[in-house]
């Protein structure tokens, strides 16, 4: 059994934990990046096609609403397995880090879309009215007024989603993607190695703290 300051724990760190940290980061950043972009597009479409939006389209709105709710109902593990043929189409395989990024992105996108939609709706209608009275075009209202006003709230939303995606990466071990969650489970808990479990949890705590602090900082700068 390894004690906390033995050479074995250092060895484990280099060989097992450090690569897992890299895998978690890559999965997190790529999934968060793509799902933020896709979620943003989805949110814009939602507020524009809403009955009170610029181009009301109840059919499209209801359809997107339904898709979002459906994807969000899937437990992540089930979604991961259910979309394997789609994952294979996109990255060529159902196993590994890239294969994990597909379900991570798909499950996070509707979540982010909902958060962004909420932020965009919350924008003070008086500001929108003021912009209209200045003769702003519709696209200017959406992108230069509503989005800009909603930006601090959207950043908070991204941080929320990123931490949720981090939780998802823990389950990516199921498809052999590695990552800190998989290491904590396989080399920590199932191998009865408390030291590895504790180290990976501490690392995860640090990551979450850093993400949240960064988010708070950016939020303040935008207000």
């Amino acid at each position: 059994m390894e004690s906390f300051f033995s050479p074995e724990i250092y060895d484990s760190f280099i060989k097992i934990i450090w690569p897992a940290l890299g895998a978690t980061f890559r999965m997190l950043i790529v999934s968060a990046g793509f799902s933020t972009i896709f979620g943003f597009v989805l949110a814009i479409v939602l507020i524009v096609t809403d009955t009170r939006g610029l181009y009301p389209n109840p059919l499209l709105y209801k359809f997107l609403d339904f898709i979002i709710n459906t994807i969000r109902s899937f437990p992540f593990i089930i979604l991961l397995v259910a979309i394997i043929p789609f994952t294979r189409m996109i990255v060529g395989t159902s196993i590994g880090e890239q294969a994990a990024i597909v379900p991570l992105t798909i499950s996070a996108t509707p979540f982010i879309a909902r958060i962004f939609e909420g932020s965009l709706r919350e924008v003070d209608p008086q500001i929108i009215e003021a912009a209209k009275s200045f003769g702003a075009s519709e696209s200017q209202i959406v992108f230069k007024v509503i989005v800009v006003e909603a930006l601090p709230s959207m950043v908070s939303g991204i941080i929320l989603a990123v931490i949720s995606i981090l939780g998802g990466t823990a389950m990516a071990g199921v498809v052999g993607a590695g990552g800190l969650g998989a290491v904590a489970l396989l080399y920590g808990y199932q191998s009865f190695n408390t030291e590895i479990m504790v180290v990976t949890v501490i690392l995860l705590i640090i990551i979450v703290q850093v993400i949240q602090t960064t988010g708070n900082f950016v939020y303040k700068k935008l207000r």
Partner: peptide, 16 residues
Amino acid sequence: LKEVAGQQVVNNMQDV
């Protein structure tokens, strides 16, 4: 050497 469950892989043998 891939650390994936057998049950996960058996229906996806084309990926390994």
